[in-house]
């Protein structure tokens, strides 16, 4: 930490995703030039968010309370759990408005390299949640990568039992995608997952 608070601010800003030292300097200058309209309200917001936002004890989502709005909502189908890697994935699903069940945020994928095992990902918590559901469905919405699918298969193994359907998202041609521009892997997956018209 330097003595100069401006230098220190630039250093901190430069560590944010998407910002390097040069853009951090620009952002710091912009903030200083607009103290009243941008800098102070932003500082207040940051302070407020840091104090109030909590991680949901049930699903791992971010919200104002210990149990998030989605987990509290009695209109949502609690027998269907969608497992996602990150809160950003949960937000993407919610933006699409296509799922009325509840979520479980893993916080990453299993990775021996990064020292992330089942404990670090809260898989035990998911198993315990699923054990309370007599008949339901767990939708594994992990990414279509080796790590993502290995994690999905591992969770599938752990949750396998009568009365619990375990599904995963389809892989294939995206909406608006042209075959000509697709990579071989996506085409292979799309061909494998074809269905009658």
């Amino acid at each position: 930490m330097t003595d100069n608070p401006l230098e220190s601010l630039i250093k901190r800003l430069s560590r944010l995703p998407g910002l390097g030292p040069r853009s951090a300097r620009r952002a710091a200058l912009h903030l200083l030039k607009n103290k009243e309209t941008t800098m102070l309200p932003l500082a207040e917001e940051l302070d407020h968010v840091a104090r109030t936002i909590k991680t949901c004890v049930e699903c791992g989502n971010l919200d104002l309370t210990d149990k998030c709005r989605i987990c509290y909502d009695s209109r949502r189908d609690a027998t269907r759990i969608c497992v996602v890697e990150d809160v950003a994935d949960l937000w993407a699903m919610e933006r699409a408005g296509i799922f009325s069940g509840v979520y479980h945020v893993l916080g990453g994928t299993l990775s021996a390299l990064d020292g992330r095992g089942p404990k670090e990902l809260g898989i035990e918590r998911l198993v315990a949640r699923a054990a309370n559901i007599e008949e339901g469905e767990v939708i594994l919405a992990t990414s279509a990568t080796v790590d993502g699918q290995t994690t999905a298969h591992y969770i599938g193994e752990r949750l396998e039992r009568d009365g619990m359907a375990i599904t995963r998202l389809a892989h294939g041609v995206p909406v608006g995608g042209e075959l000509n521009y697709l990579d071989d892997g996506t085409l292979t997956q799309a061909m494998k997952a074809r269905r009658p018209l």
Partner: peptide, 25 residues
Amino acid sequence: ELERSAPAACLDNPLKLAAIASCCA
């Protein structure tokens, strides 16, 4: 530049995925 993706054809087979990961590790 990608030439061939073996894992892409195996994403739904846990045993094959594990074998590819094991081989690389």
